[in-house]
């Protein structure tokens, strides 16, 4: 079993797998708040959706290839937190208004 499921104990798996997926989704969602909506009022919805595969790929390859795992954990985690904060702020503002 260890032969097949040994990757669960690998830090890089958790960094490049679940964390990268969650953080790239948070980046996409937070972009809806700060991306300029443009005249058509739709750029802030469409552009983040379009950029999601690229955001994911960038974070994934960084997480997968980096030699400095601790730094990568810190950077990706912080990126996730900042974007989460933007989303939370948006919801509080919407509720408040």
């Amino acid at each position: 079993m260890n032969r097949f499921f040994g990757f669960f104990r690998n830090q890089r798996f958790w960094l490049a797998g679940p964390l990268t997926t969650v953080v790239s989704m948070l980046c996409m969602l937070a972009m809806a708040v700060y991306f300029p909506p443009g005249v058509g009022n739709i750029n802030n919805i469409l552009m983040p959706l379009l950029m999601f595969p690229i955001i994911w790929a960038c974070i994934f390859f960084y997480a997968y290839l980096t030699q400095h795992l601790k730094r990568a954990w810190f950077i990706i985690f912080t990126l996730g937190l900042i974007n989460l904060a933007i989303i939370v702020l948006q919801f509080t503002l919407v509720k408040g208004s």
């Binding site: 005249v39 469409l46 552009m47």
Partner: peptide, 17 residues
């Protein structure tokens, strides 16, 4: 426009995709 009521960059990119 492909998406929305006014021409936009997002709509252009989507219509190219």
């Amino acid at each position: 426009p492909f998406v929305g009521t006014e021409p936009s960059f997002g709509s252009l990119i989507l219509s190219l995709i």
